[in-house]
Design a protein around this nucleic acid. Sequence first.
DNA 1: CGCTGCGTTGAATCCTATCAACGCTCGTGG
DNA 2: CCACGAGCGTTGATAGGATTCAACGCAGCG
Lengths: 239, 239
Amino acid sequence: MRSTRQADHSNAVFRYFAAKGNLTDTERDELNRLLHFVRQHTPNTELCTQGEVQQPRILLTGWACQQQVLRTGRRQIIRFLLPGDFIGSLECPLQPAMSAVVALTLGTLADARSLLQAVHEPNETNRGLATLVRSAVRAEEAGLRDHIVRLGGRTAYERVVHLILELHSRLQEVGLAEANSFVMPLTQESIADALGISFVHTNRTLQQVKRDGLFGIRAGLVTIQNLGEMRRIAEWQDD
Amino acid sequence: MRSTRQADHSNAVFRYFAAKGNLTDTERDELNRLLHFVRQHTPNTELCTQGEVQQPRILLTGWACQQQVLRTGRRQIIRFLLPGDFIGSLECPLQPAMSAVVALTLGTLADARSLLQAVHEPNETNRGLATLVRSAVRAEEAGLRDHIVRLGGRTAYERVVHLILELHSRLQEVGLAEANSFVMPLTQESIADALGISFVHTNRTLQQVKRDGLFGIRAGLVTIQNLGEMRRIAEWQDD
DNA sequence: CGCTGCGTTGAATCCTATCAACGCTCGTGG
DNA sequence: CCACGAGCGTTGATAGGATTCAACGCAGCG
């Protein structure tokens, strides 16, 4: 079952780029060529170590997260990485990363050095790619800002709802979510570490959300039951 | 008094760029030329309206903040803007901003369109500028990540200490802070809205911090008394 | 003079964390 | 085959941190 799911994900990055703009056949071929080198990894693999220089890569399949572990033992998840997302700074690839990236599931990576190099030396064939990469950076920044508002301005209940909406929206962009359901391989502990609340309280909040008929999680499958109410509670706004 | 302070700030952006790398005389002149158009604004001026397309600009003097107001009336400050900081997305200047930028003090803005246009069409004279702009974008992203960790992973006490350290560090970069003091025109309510805590609790936390001999705030002047202990508590790490 | 913005303080309440224990599933090894 | 442990989810009780509401002081200013 996991292998079939992986097969479904294998071209998420292409759907991602396709969703952001219209790629010409030439650009699509170029993208395919630039992302040729692929590497597999298992859960809990450290894809990017804090403080080390890291080459830019793209997550093709599986989930990961960017995180930082504090002295108290608490870890803060800065953002979730879904298929199609970039790993490492695109602006200054040679700068050491200030936070770690850890795989949450099985997955595969593509080397993005060639892609970024091509983007920084613009020519006729890959001008479209450059625009798409920049829009990806912009989306990443917007995600960070949304996370700040979520952590600083919303209650635990609203945070949970808002996170599910974000994941749903992002997965839909790459064709990995249905209209009212999607596979979410996150433990409640991961959700807690992302939302800045304890995993015990995350559990209780999820139960409350289910009792209120908003959405439910069963065996890693999120089933959305009342999208409109979810959006109202979380003040969701599309890009 | 305010006019003299403003005079001191007027070249903060140049110090900012100078701190990030060595500018040649040619590049310095070019920067000076590209930032020629300046506009003044008063406190509470909306420098950038949520949802509207905004031209890229640079804050030359004064403080501002990027914020988002929620349905409950709570406002979340996403980041503080200090002299030398960019306003608006540098990646996609023509995209509408998803959050507002509001001036916190008197200040001045410079139009950065020419600068960014020059950066996007690299040539011999401004290659150094392009590198500096990219490093500014990287620093901005790092700041957003730090804020996420601050909001999600730290206590109110640690948040306050960490924020003061960040402001101190950033102001020092542009020559606007002494070794153990700096001018901070923020109300406790602004601090609260940035750190995701109520202003009443912010007040009590600030008093506790002062009692512990870490730092004090009096009449808009922050006086740092125990930098080492502050860094230990906030787990501060330099770039 | 009174108003407004900002800081301060007290008391009660609420939300969330912490500690602890238990159930469940699944993979592994005896 | 069963026993065992690990990982994850669930639940209860208690403690603590933060919010809220309210009131007051104080400086600056029209």
